Each structure stands twice: as structure tokens, then as C-alpha cells.
Computed example of a mutant assay.
Amino acid sequence: MRASIDRLYPVLALALLAAGTVWLERVSRVEDPAAAGAQRTGPDFIAEQTRILGFGSDGRQRYELISERLTHYPQDDTTKLDQPRLTMQSEGRQLRLTSAEADVSPGGERVDMSGEVRGRREGGADRPEITFASEKLTVWPDDHRAATDTPVVLTQGQSTATARGLRADNLFGNLTLIGDAKVNMPRRPRNPS
């Protein structure tokens, strides 16, 4: 009888060890990997002095986005930019936009610029440059569109326009001023007859 009890000790010890291992694994296991990622509240990466280039289907560069600091948050897959500078090509002319900060949507389809948003589109042979000022501007770089519902000031040469908002297709090629739009154009000099 003693020999049969001595044979049970190793089996009992292994059973207790297995039960302890199962218990420890269940206590320390994270149930859902997605939930574990959602619990993380900080950024997953930060980069200084970044430069992002976007290309069209024809292989030509469409835009360049430079930022002093880029911070990515995995919770909602957004990216925050400090002092972004967005340069885009449209109709052979360059548009430059700057702001204090910006949020880039997941996938990069939309850039929400805020804080002293300034823009300048190069002039052409028959058009002076256009400048833009507002506190916020949403840009869709791939679609070459922009919009804001905050007050804007536009200048082109000696002309100035103000409004409560703006919609732009072809990035300042076709502009729609929204709400209380006012345009100040200098008088043309009269031709002596």
C-alpha cells in the first residue's frame, strides 16, 4: 500500500503544478488584443523634423508636408503635427499653407489645420499671388479641396475679400466665399478722353 501512495505523490505534484499554471495564465491574460491597445492612452511614436511626400497616379509629386513634430495616437489612428507646412502643386502654380498645428485623419485623406492658418498661392503671368488668413482650414490634399467655417481674409494684388467661411476647389483656383462676403477692389484709373 505504501508503494502505491509513493507513486501518487509525483502525479499529485504535477496536477497541482498544472492547476497553478492554468490559474496564473488566466489571471495574467488580456482578453481582447484590441481592448488592450485601446487602454493605451499615449502616442505610439513621435518624430521630429518630418517630411511626407504625396504622389499622384502619374508618379508626379502632388504635395509635401513638413512638420517640426509628428505624434501618432493608435487609439483613433490620428496624427498631430506641430507647425506644419503644406506645399501643393496645382495648375503649374504652388500653394503653401502653414499653421500652428494640424490633425491628420486616419489614412491621411484630410488635414485639419488650426491656429494662425496662412496661405500663399503663386501668381501667374496675368494674375497676382493670392494670400489667405484664417484660424482653421480643412484640406483634402488628394482632392485639392479646402474649406473653413471660420472668418477668412483673402488678398489678391490690391483687392481684399472677407467672409465668414470659404470653400475652395482646385485649391484657390475656384473660390466660394460664405456669409457676409465683402470685397474691396481699388478703382481703376480713368483713361483721359
Rank of each mutant, 00 (worst) to 15 (best):
R69E: 14
E135Q: 09
E129M: 06
I178M: 04
A38M: 07
S90A: 08
A36E: 09
T176F: 01
R51M: 09
V117P: 02
E101T: 14
T41R: 13
R85I: 12
G119Y: 01
E25V: 13
A146M: 02
R85T: 14
G107I: 08
N184E: 15
A146G: 05
G157M: 05
A35D: 12
T148Y: 04
P33H: 08
L16Q: 03
L137M: 08
V104C: 01
R85C: 05
D77N: 14
G59Q: 09
W140Q: 12
G92F: 02
V153Y: 00
A181T: 03
R51F: 07
E109H: 04
G20D: 09
S193A: 14
T87G: 00
Q94K: 10
N184V: 14
T78D: 10
Q158P: 15
P192F: 03
A147T: 12
R93A: 03
S4T: 10
A102K: 07
Y9M: 09
L17M: 11
T41C: 04
A34P: 04
M1I: 12
R120K: 08
P74R: 06
P10F: 11
G108W: 14
D44I: 06
R127D: 12
T79S: 00
Q156H: 04
L97G: 03
V30A: 13
R7D: 10
A181V: 05
A36V: 01
D149V: 06
I130L: 13
S134K: 12
P186V: 08
V22E: 10
V111F: 05
E122A: 15
R69Q: 11
D126T: 13
A133C: 00
Y9S: 09
P33C: 09
E135M: 00
M185F: 04
E135Y: 01
A102C: 08
R187G: 13
S99P: 08
G173Q: 12
W23K: 11
F132L: 06
A168C: 06
G92C: 03
P84Y: 08
P33E: 11
S4Y: 10
E101D: 11
R167F: 07
G56S: 14
E109M: 04
E31T: 13
R190V: 11
G107N: 05
L166R: 00
D169T: 15
I46T: 10
R187P: 07
G54L: 09
